[in-house]
Simulated scan of single mutants.
Amino acid sequence: MSDLWIPISGAICLTIMVIVNVIVGSKNKKEVQQTIRQLLDKEVNITPEILEKLGTFKSQKIIDLRRGLALISIGVACVFSGVVVYEARLGLAIGLFPFLLGVAFLLCWKMNQDAE
């Protein structure tokens, strides 16, 4: 087998993960919208507490922190796996992009904390 199958399978797995995430997120948003429509049909006042319980209101600060930590850990894992298979330069090249994205999300999180 060719060595090209490793990055090809990685790209396929990443694509599948993104597609599944989009589909699940879309389904969740659709169900929340149906619930809100049912509440409006029953003429129930929709308060921020109800929206928070439905999961429509998510703190951007928390999301930035989670994304930042997840992306940094993916970047570090890529570098570590590159070291394990004696391809540190390749691991660094692949892991640098998610690592820097994670740092950017952590900076956004920190700036949002300081804004309050």
Rank of each mutant, 00 (worst) to 15 (best):
S2G: 06
S2C: 09
L4F: 07
W5M: 06
W5F: 14
W5S: 14
I8Y: 13
I8M: 05
S9K: 08
G10A: 03
C13E: 13
C13D: 09
L14T: 04
L14E: 06
T15D: 02
T15L: 06
I16F: 02
M17F: 14
M17N: 10
V18Q: 04
G25M: 04
K27L: 10
K27Q: 07
K27A: 07
N28H: 13
E31S: 12
V32N: 09
Q34P: 05
Q34S: 12
T35P: 08
T35R: 13
Q38K: 11
K42V: 05
K42N: 14
V44W: 03
V44T: 07
N45S: 13
N45E: 15
T47D: 10
P48Y: 07
P48F: 05
P48W: 01
L51Q: 10
L51K: 08
F57K: 13
K58T: 05
K58E: 12
Q60K: 05
Q60D: 09
K61I: 01
I62S: 08
I63Y: 02
D64H: 02
D64N: 11
L65D: 02
G68F: 00
G68E: 01
G68W: 02
A70N: 04
L71A: 05
L71N: 02
I72Q: 06
I74C: 07
G75M: 00
C78M: 14
V79A: 15
F80D: 03
V84A: 15
V84E: 07
V85G: 04
V85P: 04
R89V: 13
R89H: 15
L90T: 15
A93E: 08
G95K: 00
F97R: 03
F99I: 00
A104L: 08
F105E: 01
L106F: 00
L107T: 09
C108F: 12
M111Y: 14
M111R: 14
M111E: 06
E116M: 12
E116S: 08
